[in-house]
Amino acid sequence: MKVTVKVEGLRDLDAALSELPKITTAKAVVRRVLKKAAEPLRALAEQTAPRLTGALKISIVIGTKLTRRQARMARKEPKSLTEMFIGTSNPAAVPQEFGTHDQKAQPFMRPAWQATKDQVLTNIGNELGPEIEKTAARLAKKAARGG
Rank of each mutant, 00 (worst) to 15 (best):
A93K: 08
A28S: 13
T122C: 03
K134D: 05
V5M: 01
K142H: 08
L10Q: 04
A71W: 08
K65D: 08
F108I: 07
Q70F: 09
K65F: 02
L44A: 07
W113G: 02
E39S: 13
R145V: 13
L10G: 04
P107N: 07
R75H: 07
S18F: 09
A115Y: 04
V33L: 06
V33C: 04
M73D: 09
Q114M: 09
A55K: 10
A115D: 04
K36S: 11
K6A: 12
I124K: 10
K104H: 11
M84F: 12
S89M: 11
P91M: 15
T67E: 03
S18W: 08
A112P: 00
G87F: 06
E39M: 15
T116C: 04
E39I: 05
S80Q: 01
V61F: 11
A74Q: 08
G147T: 10
V30Y: 01
T135V: 13
L20E: 02
A137S: 12
T100N: 05
E83W: 06
M1R: 02
I62M: 01
K104A: 15
G63C: 03
I132V: 15
K57A: 14
P107A: 04
R11H: 08
T88Q: 03
F108L: 04
L66H: 02
K27M: 04
S89Q: 11
A43E: 06
Q70K: 09
W113L: 14
P111I: 06
Q47V: 05
G54K: 10
T48Q: 11
N123G: 13
A105M: 06
E46G: 12
D102L: 15
A55W: 05
A143P: 00
